[in-house]
Computed example of a mutant assay.
Amino acid sequence: MVDRESLPYRDCVGLAIFNGHGEVFVGHRKGITDEHAWQMPQGGIDEGEDPLRCAMRELYEETSVTSVSLLAEAPEWIYYDLPDEALGVAFKGKYRGQRQRWFAFAFHGDDSEIDVLTPGGGKHKAEFDGWRWEKLSRTPALIVPFKRPAYEKVVEAFGDIPQRFA
């Protein structure tokens, strides 16, 4: 049995990408058939990497998107813990969950810029097999249940942004 308290959190970024209608990008996790397979882009921060630079890198690596401008940064790190059955297995058994720095961006490109099947010009492994625009308030219901409290904090942090596009 793995001692949860002895494991650190993995530092990551999360990205809420808003279109001109105030909706956010959600990607469907590749190969997952569960109804909660939708999420916003996210990824690990490399050692010594600035979180904002990481966010831009992850966005490109997962969606091919570059046409964005920063709207906001969540005021604090947002955490989630892995469920007991994934502890010691997920993240190569090294972490208890993630500590995420969330950023909100405005997307200024055309939807045709988004390519989740061959992201980054085909230089990166696809993490999503589909995508759509969704209301930010609906995202907690789309994510796997153990990440739902983290997504509720994201909604709280960026809840005023959709009205800016009205």
Rank of each mutant, 00 (worst) to 15 (best):
E47H: 13
V89E: 13
F107S: 08
A141W: 10
L71K: 01
G121M: 08
A72P: 03
L136A: 01
W77I: 14
F105K: 03
A86C: 12
T66N: 00
P140L: 02
A74V: 03
R132C: 04
E62V: 12
A55I: 10
L52F: 14
W77G: 12
S67M: 02
K153G: 08
Y151S: 00
R99D: 03
L142R: 03
K92Q: 15
K123Q: 11
G120Y: 01
E47Q: 14
F107D: 00
R148G: 09
H124P: 05
T139P: 01
Q100H: 11
W77C: 12
V116E: 10
V116T: 04
V89C: 06
G122T: 01
K125W: 10
A106C: 04
G130Y: 05
G97A: 08
A74S: 07
A72C: 07
P75N: 13
T63H: 06
Y60R: 15
R53A: 15
G120R: 03
L142M: 12
G121C: 11
W133V: 00
Y79H: 10
S112T: 15
L71M: 04
G109N: 02
P51I: 09
D81F: 09
E47C: 11
E113K: 09
P51T: 02
K123M: 13
G121D: 07
P51C: 03
G121F: 09
C54R: 06
L117C: 07
H108L: 11
G93C: 14
E49Q: 15
M56K: 14
F107K: 01
P140H: 01
Q100E: 15
A150T: 11
P149C: 11
F107W: 01
L136S: 01
L59Q: 09
K153E: 15
E76W: 09
E76C: 12
E76D: 12
E47Y: 12
T118R: 13
V144I: 13
L82G: 08
E76M: 08
I114S: 05
L71P: 00
R57G: 04
F128G: 05
G97Q: 03
D111G: 01
L70G: 05
F105C: 01
A90M: 13
E61V: 06
A126V: 07
A104W: 03
G109R: 02
